[in-house]
Design a protein around this nucleic acid. Sequence first.
DNA 1: ACTGGTTCCTGCGAGC
DNA 2: TGCTCGCAGGAACCAG
Length: 269
Amino acid sequence: MPELPEVETTRRMLEPVLVGRVVRDVIHTDPERYRNTTAMLGKQIRAIERRGKYLILRLDDGLDCIVHLKMTGGFRTTELPFLEPPRFERLRLVLHDGEVSYVDSRRFGFWEVLPRNEWAHLGTLAKMGPEPLEDEFALEPFQAAMAKVSKVKPALLSQKPVAGVGNIYADESLWHAQIHPEASKLSAAQSKRLHTAIREVMTRAVAVGGSTLSDNSYQQPNGEPGYFKLQHAVYDRAGQPCPRCGSTIEKYFLAQRGTHFCPRCQPKP
DNA sequence: ACTGGTTCCTGCGAGC
DNA sequence: TGCTCGCAGGAACCAG
């Protein structure tokens, strides 16, 4: 499930394939889900950026193409033309010197082409918090926000205190910081540990291409998996020993999300 | 302004 | 082997 590390990996791999190219065709059959994509025709892709879990293709004439991969979205690129469409292909970008395929088995992801930075109707994007791997992710404002939360994990998932944290990286970061997912009103020391943990977890995950959970979930655009799952301490490890203390990792549901934690390292407050 | 619940969608793995 | 069934979850949306 693409979170910041998976989306950033995707962005980096798409950059040399897309930037500078002109969009010759956009092929799909779902104009409700992939909105206004005909506006891309004939436009050059000037840059590909990322904001939280959103990809933003910057096009000629002041247009942005917003892409959200949601649960199962992803890209496939090849050096040669595709001999057959990749499995679960939903959209294909035809460029003057190649093609890029967008796949999404569950069809939760969406595309929308709109005038530059006109994101008001996408509330989560418009109100996105600071990027955790940039200097803008300052400690003091994060501590101030965390001092008010009622439950820390749902707060992280809101994208407001910090951008790009999803279910996997919330669980992993809270384990590293030794904070229970339902902890409220974090102390300055707790928030500092969490701030450090988010930066470290995200940095290490980006370095290895993100997390691939199973064959059908996220893959890098070249078809390779991401290797961060090998470093997961708690996520998808219920019943296995905590790497820090050896206690058995537990899983339960918090705000409708599978939540993994170590009951000894992350005691319930 | 918040919180909490529902919805979208479908492949897959577990269980029988 | 083949079937059913519940799980996976980001974020838009809606109700309270």
